[in-house]
Design a protein around this nucleic acid. Structure first.
Lengths: 80, 80, 80, 80
DNA sequence: TCAGATAAAATCGCGC
DNA sequence: GCGCGATTTTATCTGA
């Protein structure tokens, strides 16, 4: 019984931590929306902006992946 | 030409703001994942936790909607 | 060749089935719009109606989620 | 007061009609999902199928628009 | 034209 | 490891 109440308290703590983090996440998502809205108000096309950001993200991912492959090669050489 | 460079600078600033915010958002999403993992390690069922959180969110949303519809009713009465 | 034509025919059949269903769906969406228009013509506030419908849907969803989490709890007890 | 009850009954009828239509719409959406699932089980790529359907819809829309433009031209000639 | 709702698409995490 | 289902994100559409 003591076990249960401790567990419940623990579960509650986990859940509240997650809910707080989700609220932060939502707040940031709202900020992002606001920036898009502001950019739109300045005359930029949101769809195009999303495309640019997506392309830049793909570039970053690609670069990161290439670095990982390079690391693999270097590690292989080190082992040789 | 000056116009273009100013605009480009502006667009670039918007995009970098968004990218920074998206990175923060991703970091928080990672935190959430970690909390779930920790809870799972402590013996809690992630699926149940997600359901609990979902139900609590529905409660909040429902309460908010009820307030909104009450406002609509009051506004309708005010106009009557 | 026979294989290809059979497959093509099959794919075509799937696509036409989906297109027919989408058309039905669109027709129903139009019906819904008409009902809103009719209600509006009778003096009802569409915004309020949408809120009411939304709240009723939330009630249903919440009840369903509660049943689901109950099932999860019962399953957990059964495993205990 | 009689007026109010009549109105309420009317509103209720509108709302129930809409809810029934929305349920039908959801049922058709489920059917569509099932067809996609069935096609997937037969080996077709759902993403490609969606693309095909989208392109065919665009073609239809384009054709319809061209017909409307043609009608405008014909009407203009008739008026000339 | 704009925001807000709706639907479509992509992504991610989980269990098998 | 991979499909499946849930979540998230993107795009479309409609009504104010």
């Amino acid at each position: 019984m003591s076990t249960n109440s401790v567990d419940s308290g623990h579960l509650r703590a986990f859940i509240e931590r997650i809910e707080r983090l989700e609220e932060e996440k939502r707040a940031i998502a709202d900020d992002i929306k606001e920036v898009y809205a502001e950019a739109k108000g300045t005359g930029y096309d949101v769809k195009v902006m999303r495309k640019i950001i997506s392309l830049r993200r793909m570039d970053r991912d690609k670069r990161r992946e290439e670095e990982e492959i390079l690391d693999l090669y270097l590690a292989a050489l080190g082992e040789a």
